[in-house]
Amino acid sequence: MTSASSQQEVTISSGEFLTFILGGEEYGVDILAVRGIQGWDGVTRIPDTPDYMLGVINLRGAIVPIVDMRIKFNLKRAEFDSTTVVIVVRAELGGEDHILGLVVDAVSEVYKIDQGTIQSNPEFNADQANDMVKGLITIEEKMVIILDVDMLIEDWAPDGLAQEDVAA
């Protein structure tokens, strides 16, 4: 706990977090943002999109984009196998809810976390992946990286070209 006091507190409301494995690390997302978990079943590719955008799937009638978290976090690309899962989450962008699927190696646990145990992310460098990390916690002597799902889709905002005013 002594190390915690030396680091800045971050405001993450306490609650339950779903954790998943990605390249040997354990990551967590707020369980309230999780909409479901399903197996990998292929996607329809979308042209002209970043590498991490695998494509879209049909999720109960909605077109849902699928993000490969390994590529998003600059990890080595993995073969998808039977344990590969898609965590469907809800993220907010500009006041609108977006549903998206995150492809991860495997789902791990659900932990209950108190606010006091969360430490802010040490600023290693101004890496993009760093923005998506909300904080770190230690659970059963393992480090879990808590993600901010809203930051995952930050670059999906419509291009700067605002709608032109027709009446002008």
Binding site: I46, P47, D48, G55, V56, N58, I63, H98, A157
Partner: peptide, 27 residues
């Protein structure tokens, strides 16, 4: 017609997507 924009963003060259009889998405 289903919107791609709703959960992702506008994609050039596509009006949207649809769901085929087999449940797959077609652009």
């Amino acid at each position: 017609i289903k919107s791609i924009e709703k959960n992702y963003k506008k994609v050039d060259g596509l009006t949207g997507a649809t769901i085929l009889g087999n449940g797959r998405v077609a652009l």
